[in-house]
């Protein structure tokens, strides 16, 4: 296990770190041994000046900071609601879990159809309320519309696992707390706020950290929804990981590999910082 971890996790991580400091790295030169002309911080300064990198940061942050809390709230409500319909629970659990076992890109394509300007389900429903069709993901789509579509898709896709975790977490809460709260005249909302959420808080922290990491690594959803153009207009929905991929496979100039590595390292530190903030902030609010 440790050897596998070293080969597939630690070595690539350290190597990416090293590569991000290579100057003029040509990985395929010298029969695959690669060639460099020295070490430099320039890779970082180059991507920090890159407009596209800032675009990817903005997209990723907006996506992560909105989709994670919203999806946690929705999945909490759904889990609690499922608890109150024990007979249909199994059925709905399966329904809600289906997205988890379905390929993200395939689902993304299905969503792309639903977001279609002329034939899509979303505009059809909006039409019932006399709202004129919105171009969600096409060439004329605004950044907001695209982000909205991506957000809806991301939240929907991430609900499955959260609901699974929360429903099993709810099962572990002693029923007597609810009986006690009921006798103590607590309303349903009070019970949710004062009993359920605090008692689930360790799970909520776990879910918020893992899904924050997942959201910061968003890529599949963008490809699935917008295709390789990464947006209605090329690159308008680019994320950090998509940025890494773009440069990793861009052979048009020297050092592309190191740019990708630098962006990946920046993402690594962003993720680290986010996780640290979450653990610190939540320390006072988590009840084990």
């Amino acid at each position: 296990m440790l050897i596998l971890m070293i080969v597939f996790t630690f070595y690539p991580l350290i190597n990416a770190f090293v590569i991000s400091f290579y100057k003029d790295y040509l990985p395929l030169a010298n029969d695959g041994a690669g060639s460099i002309t020295g070490y430099t911080f320039a890779n970082y300064s180059v991507i920090l000046k890159n407009q596209l990198f800032w675009q990817s940061l903005k997209n990723t942050f907006v996506l992560a900071l909105v989709s994670v809390p919203v999806s946690i709230l929705i999945s909490l409500f759904i889990s609690v609601a499922l608890k109150s319909i024990p007979k249909l629970k199994g059925f709905f659990q399966t329904v809600f879990f289906l997205p988890y076992v379905t390929n993200g890109i395939a689902v993304g394509m299905a969503f792309a159809v639903m977001f279609h300007r002329d034939y899509g389900l979303f505009n059809l429903i909006l039409g019932w309320f006399n709202i004129s069709p919105i171009d969600w993901i096409g060439g004329t789509a605004s950044w907001w519309a695209q982000m909205g579509a991506l957000m809806i898709f991301t939240i929907w896709e991430s609900l499955a696992f959260k609901i699974l975790v929360f429903t099993s977490g709810l099962q572990n809460i002693d029923k007597q707390y609810y009986d006690a709260a009921k006798i103590d005249h607590a309303t349903k909302w009070t019970i949710f706020k004062r009993i359920t959420v605090p008692l689930l808080s360790p799970l909520i922290l776990y879910i918020s950290i893992t899904s924050m990491i997942g959201a910061l690594k968003a890529y599949n959803s963008v490809i699935g929804l917008f295709g390789e153009k990464l947006g209605g207009q090329p690159y308008s929905m680019i994320t950090i990981v998509a940025f890494v991929y773009k440069y990793r496979s861009d052979f048009s100039f020297q050092g592309f590999y190191s740019y990708a590595a630098s962006a990946a390292i920046i993402l690594f530190f962003i993720t680290l910082i986010f996780s640290l903030i979450q653990t610190t902030v939540s320390k006072k609010r988590i009840h084990y």
């Binding site: 002693d174 007597q176 707390y177 009986d179 006690a180 009993i195 008692l199 009840h287």
Partner: peptide, 14 residues
């Protein structure tokens, strides 16, 4: 209008 004490007390742990 009852007060009930549960067998395992059911005090809210948090």
């Amino acid at each position: 209008g009852i007060g009930l004490v549960f067998q395992n007390y059911a005090l809210y742990p948090h």
